[in-house]
Design a binder for these strands. Structure first.
Lengths: 206, 206
DNA sequence: TCAACTATTGACACGATGTCAATAGTCCTG
DNA sequence: CAGGACTATTGACATCGTGTCAATAGTTGA
């Protein structure tokens, strides 16, 4: 696999500072995990990419899964989302504006990230995490916009419900932007009416 | 593992009709795949559960993945009975029953069906086709249950809206069964209220 | 220069999957 | 009711992936 090196000066073992070595292995793993799904990347592959013995990976990272999680963790901290403030108004208006804001920002960012969620191409754990982070941010924004920020008691469950809702919103946007089976007003009606229903019926049921 | 059988009459090898044997293995696999995710179920486990040599699984099913796909296929297929089971009644009642039916069948099939969207194995065209087919079926069932089967004019858009809704349902079920952040009644309220909202507000807006 | 120190290796043990020839129930015929 | 043909079933084998560990070889400091 590795082409024979004409340069003979290269030592058999290259001894690096642990931090550097760890970093190097990490970068190789990151590249591989971004290219292929978890099961299709073997530790042997990572070791080969890093030009290192397989055992060394297990020395620096507890196991394959640990390395994978670390890759995920790091790439998830990179994302940042612009938080927009929503104006005051009646709940009905605020919901409507929240939906408008959501669809606007979606239209602006293009269909690219939308396709990644469940669309046609291979899974990318890196982007996956970024999307989850972004999703979390939208959830908190939504909760704020709906005037539910104060309740700390059932916050976890409210969050869960909004997390469910964002899937609906995401899917609705997909029908609009990708499949083009629905128009924007239709998606708007869909998202607004369901969000109202959740706030008026599902949340109180907690 | 297997308790020693005091009954000595049991033959070493139990020879079955291929169809029966296949079915038996299939049922064991189904049970295991519903209890644990794909990677955590070994062919050895399935063989042990079926009281059969490991090689026999590969004889009846091309490989582990093939067996898994078959389990998915069956458990994601909407039973014909379900259609006839939906009774007459007010829209409100029928919606409620549809949600109950959905959650019931989900609870039965366990985490198998849910894990498909995100975790589990890498992308698989076969799996993809199976899921799309299953989704289409549930959508048509839902449309029927909601008394919208007659309208042929906007059928495409109605379908699209229900496709969006199934994503909500799926996501809600995930919160309930996998993340355990919501209880079943809460998910029920969430699904029912949003479905009502879609029918009363979003569909007429078409 | 030599001796601790430790980064790195390579071999080992283990478990999982898939293949295949050998084996043993079952059926059918003479 | 043999006994042979048919085939469902087995168990061993080859391969691959992961994790562990003592041995090895760069590196550093006295």
């Amino acid at each position: 696999m590795k082409p024979p090196n004409t340069d003979m000066a290269e030592p058999r073992r290259q001894r690096l500072n642990p931090d550097e070595r760890r970093q190097q292995i990490f970068l190789c793993a990151q590249k591989l995990f971004n290219a292929r799904p978890y099961e299709e990347v073997s530790v042997t592959d990572i070791a080969a990419a890093a030009g290192v013995a397989r055992g060394l990976i297990n020395h620096y990272f507890s196991n394959k899964r640990g390395l994978y999680l670390e890759v995920i963790k790091v790439s998830s901290t990179v994302s940042e989302v612009a938080v927009t403030l929503l104006p005051e108004g009646s709940i009905h208006e605020r919901i409507d504006l929240a939906v408008v804001w959501f669809l606007d920002s979606l239209q602006r960012s293009g269909a690219t990230w939308l396709a990644l969620g469940s669309g046609g191409m291979g899974r990318d754990p890196d982007l996956e995490r970024i999307l989850i982070k972004a999703e979390n941010d939208s959830i908190e924004l939504l909760i704020e916009a709906c005037g539910l920020g104060g309740r700390t008691q059932d916050q976890e469950q409210i969050k869960a419900m909004f997390r469910v809702y964002t899937q609906l919103a995401r899917s609705g946007a997909r029908e609009w932007l990708l499949r083009k089976t629905l128009t924007r007003p239709q998606v708007h009606a869909l998202l607004a009416s369901t969000l109202r229903a959740i706030i008026k019926e599902a949340i109180p049921a907690i």
